[in-house]
Amino acid sequence: MTPPETAVADPRAGRAAPSAPRATAAVPEERPAARAGAKPMVSGRRGLPAQLAVFGFVLLPLLAVVVAVPFAWGWGLGWTDIAIAFVFYVISGMGVTVGFHRYFTHGAFKANRPLKVLLAIAGQMAVQGPVIIWVADHRRHHAFSDREGDPHSPWMFGTSVPALARGFWHAHMGWLFHRDNTNQERFAPDLLADRDIVRQDRIFWVWTLVSIFGPGLVGGLVTWSWQGALTAFFWAGLVRIALLHHVTWSVNSICHMIGERPFSARDRSANFWPLALLSFGESWHNLHHADPTCARHGVLRGQLDISARAIWFFERFGWATKVRWPNAQRLARIQATAGEMGH
């Protein structure tokens, strides 16, 4: 006798789905009050070195932004620095949006092996953590979005002005300082089984050093001067990392607080158009939470989505296959009766 079908949560989509005989069956459930014997959301506390690294990755680039204006006043910034910063921002930013997010977390397309490895490398150059940790945190976010268990919801402290201020800080940066690690075996079993990704995850520190000091090396070689190396290190290294950090964190914070909500989602995700260009389309966040595995987030007229265009490019060259593009039927299922502003 065939047992009845049960519902589990797809780790890529963060939504309830029928169970199936897949290798990634150890996936998160929708509520923290899970069935007996379920794997916990967290797997212990971070050690002191890991905690100090988090503080360093967050605070040092932020400090660079604070001193950027007086540093630039009258000297120390040129077109070479801007060009190098632009190239590194695009590589590391798309590594996060196309690689860490749409590919590794949600399976919006299939990538061949070289593209898979390159996306892991590019994403780790954003200095937002190793790929498996990043993916596990984000799948946990989708499984419990804006409810208890979400690692970075801005609504966890209430709706008063002080509570929202505290919630904004928590969603934007504060959650990074918590010492709990998301359980990777529960939220990213597929990546733990991938030798290529495990190898890249272990050498995250290598790509961190390349991302921080690589721009200075390029600047020095281009200008053939120590000053060119120093200014490129500062602007294209530290400041570029800080800018990308805050753009990414703004999707966690701002895009769950204000903006348009034209699609039906089970949380408070919203579209915030001012971030669309800098985030490569990630700030069309309402559609993403309504349909997490969709390869394009900006699906309405005028919604620029550079990450989706990159995936289209990969598909044209045969590097990406089975792309989950939106269609009329798919959008009709999640279309809200009316766009809702704010909460």
Rank of each mutant, 00 (worst) to 15 (best):
T2G: 09
T2Y: 06
T2C: 09
P4Y: 06
E5W: 10
E5S: 14
T6G: 08
P18F: 14
S19W: 15
A25V: 10
P28K: 10
E29M: 10
E30A: 14
P32E: 13
P32R: 13
A33L: 12
A34E: 09
G37Q: 12
A38Q: 10
A38L: 10
M41L: 11
V42K: 03
S43Y: 02
R45P: 02
R46Y: 05
G47P: 09
L48C: 05
L48I: 15
L52F: 14
V54R: 03
V54A: 12
V58M: 13
V67Q: 03
V67N: 03
A68D: 04
A72W: 07
W73R: 13
W75Q: 13
G76K: 09
T80H: 02
T80E: 01
D81R: 02
V87Y: 04
V87R: 09
Y89F: 11
M94Y: 05
V96T: 09
T97I: 11
T97R: 09
G99K: 10
H101F: 04
R102T: 10
Y103M: 10
F104P: 05
H106E: 02
L115A: 06
L115I: 08
L118N: 07
L118K: 08
L119F: 08
Q124H: 08
A126T: 08
V127W: 11
Q128I: 12
A136E: 12
D137H: 06
R140K: 14
H141I: 00
H142M: 05
S145A: 14
G149W: 02
D150C: 01
P154G: 07
V161D: 06
P162G: 12
A163H: 13
A163K: 09
R166L: 15
F168Q: 12
H172V: 05
M173Q: 06
W175K: 06
L176Q: 14
T182F: 01
E185Y: 00
L192Q: 00
A193Y: 02
A193G: 04
R195S: 04
D196M: 01
D201N: 03
V206T: 12
W207F: 11
T208G: 07
S211W: 08
S211A: 15
I212L: 15
G214E: 04
G216Q: 03
G216N: 05
L217M: 10
V218E: 03
G219Q: 05
G220W: 07
T223M: 01
W224N: 00
Q227T: 02
G228C: 02
G228Y: 00
L230I: 02
F233A: 05
F234Q: 02
R240A: 06
T248Q: 10
V251M: 13
N252S: 14
N252V: 12
S253G: 13
S253I: 14
I254M: 14
C255W: 14
C255E: 07
M257V: 15
A265E: 09
R266K: 12
D267T: 11
R268H: 14
W273T: 11
W273N: 10
L275N: 08
L275Y: 08
A276C: 08
A276T: 13
L277P: 04
G281R: 11
E282A: 09
E282D: 10
W284S: 08
W284G: 11
N286C: 15
H288K: 02
H289F: 07
T293E: 03
V299Q: 04
G302E: 00
I306K: 00
S307A: 15
I311P: 02
F314H: 06
E315K: 07
E315Y: 06
F317R: 13
W319M: 15
T321K: 12
K322D: 15
R330A: 13
L331N: 00
I334M: 04
Q335Y: 01
H343P: 08
